[in-house]
Design a protein around this nucleic acid. Sequence first.
DNA 1: AAATTTAGAACAAACGTTTGTGCAATTATA
DNA 2: TATAATTGCACAAACGTTTGTTCTAAATTT
Lengths: 349, 349
Amino acid sequence: MKSNNPTLKSIASKLGLSVSTVSRVLNGKSSRYRISKETEELILKATKDLNYMPNQLARGLRLKRTNTIGYVIPDISNPFFASIAKSVEKSARKLGYSILLCDSEENTEIERTSLQLMLNRKVDGLIISPVGLEVSHLKTIVQTNIPMVLLDRYFPDLNIPFVTSDNYQGALDAVNLLIENGHTTIACIQGLRNTSPNNDRVKGYRDAHIRHELFIDESLIVGDSFGEENGYIETKLLLRKKIIPTAIFSVSNLISLGAIRAISEEGLKIPNDISMISFDDQPYSRFLATPMTTVAQQNSQIGQIATKLLIDQIESNRRIEPRGIFLPTRIIVRDSIKRIFKLDLKALG
Amino acid sequence: MKSNNPTLKSIASKLGLSVSTVSRVLNGKSSRYRISKETEELILKATKDLNYMPNQLARGLRLKRTNTIGYVIPDISNPFFASIAKSVEKSARKLGYSILLCDSEENTEIERTSLQLMLNRKVDGLIISPVGLEVSHLKTIVQTNIPMVLLDRYFPDLNIPFVTSDNYQGALDAVNLLIENGHTTIACIQGLRNTSPNNDRVKGYRDAHIRHELFIDESLIVGDSFGEENGYIETKLLLRKKIIPTAIFSVSNLISLGAIRAISEEGLKIPNDISMISFDDQPYSRFLATPMTTVAQQNSQIGQIATKLLIDQIESNRRIEPRGIFLPTRIIVRDSIKRIFKLDLKALG
DNA sequence: AAATTTAGAACAAACGTTTGTGCAATTATA
DNA sequence: TATAATTGCACAAACGTTTGTTCTAAATTT
């Protein structure tokens, strides 16, 4: 099955030289080891002719360096992660690294085994967008001293560098916008609980209320996943409540899609019947039935920074100080928020 | 930097045994090589305690098998490819393989070097969604005898198994639907020319016309990329023509997004002013300003079948007959096609 | 002419596995 | 009791690199 590629040995014997000489020439160490110009050219020509390509397995084994980085992601089909994956792969490639990819399916157990797999394959470093609920397996990996950076989701009490959006500020801005447009009973559909993006966004939601001295109705903070189904179900329930919220703050793009589905099923219109603002801008956001006001993240930048941070760590061979990097978000105003008058609690009371 | 993991050697010397014995026990060959129950248990316990994990680099070097498959994709941020990537990764993982991912950015040169990289890393097989314009580098890879399968895009004259949608039939159905609704001047916005999905779809477009004895206006077949920008530009131009088409057949989801952008910029409405049908169904398709009628592909199945085909090839160690697999598409009717009366050529003539 | 330096390359170990074969001690067979 | 078979494991090569060290012959110096 396998073709027998040329190896250093085969080339060396063909030329009547030793393996080490060939290796040295190919690694540009001819002068340092006093290989004559003639043999150098001989070797260069032969390797070119035979199209020699070094076996990276053997190389990695010897060098303890594979030029490969492991990337664990909770859902590659989520366009948010897909676009980040794109920039991670691209920056890594530019710097001479390949990507070993695993999709953890938002499942800590898969994440754990995937990471183990990657360590066995001797990746030089890890970029992880962790599921974010469990941290013990990450702690043991930290102890191996392998360079790593967390992406999107982080653990405040864990000494690992991370890069993520300023989710707190983004959520604060979003909910402020809602409030400034007169909304006071605002639902928040959460993603996976106890993950950092979710926590930070919900905290932003709460603090926006506090700043405006608005009552926080805990029953309006619902949901437990970043997926579409969660958005659908929770919206269905929200629309059945005695007091229907006038606006929804949706914590992810997929949640929003589910919410839109529920809203249109109930025969309601955005923003006339209910307003909405959603985390994650997407190419299609502006073309939705009612163009969605969103809080956009800098997806490509997140991926690039994380990758460069990691590779810097790998190549400098030093542990960088494990600070987090928060990238600002940006609100893109479209048509999904209705300006309403304040005839709410006070007016009704 | 690196922690010194336990190796077969370190374990063997700790136990006063030889490396080979430890290796055989761990590979379940104790009985075959007459290792006593006691030493077996001794070794098993030690490896458990030390959390021994075999170095896959060394293993791969020795075994000439890495349990890794290379996956080259033109654009991981395109949701079509992202969803396929998800299913490829998942099926591969289930069968014990990891994915080495490269994004070729629709660039043959990057594709070429990425493939070379993967060969050097000794992947066991390749799944390629080729850019599709150049084939020479693929031919040389075929000669190495490494198992491979093409995905989405294929080369009719190349002896490589592939799996793709029945793009011809899908396009035929799509354009037929347009024609049945009374449209006779239908534009086709193409993707990357001379790639198989594009060719097959355009051929479907043509044949639908031929079957209905409709004139094919070559000036209505425009475009040259699967991206959003192409959709935007070509639609802008189409809407400036003397005779504006009554419908657009868009060959990809991104093209459609661009087309929608242009149409709305011109102040036109779908489907009242212009009808549309688009290849690729997306979660958001139903929520667009006017829910889009699409031809859906079986993304997940495409990925699964390709992966299983490849791994079967790898593990059976035989070349499978290089047949192509075409998966049927399905039209999802929504609201983007207007039924119009036949007051076209004949009526005007 | 003898001793020393230098040029040019080979040798060999190591990275961590897997696996064919060899070898001593024990047990079974004749 | 001598021989044969079996048990239980060790030895060593191989996979394809990289790299510290050594070796030989020629050139230079004394």
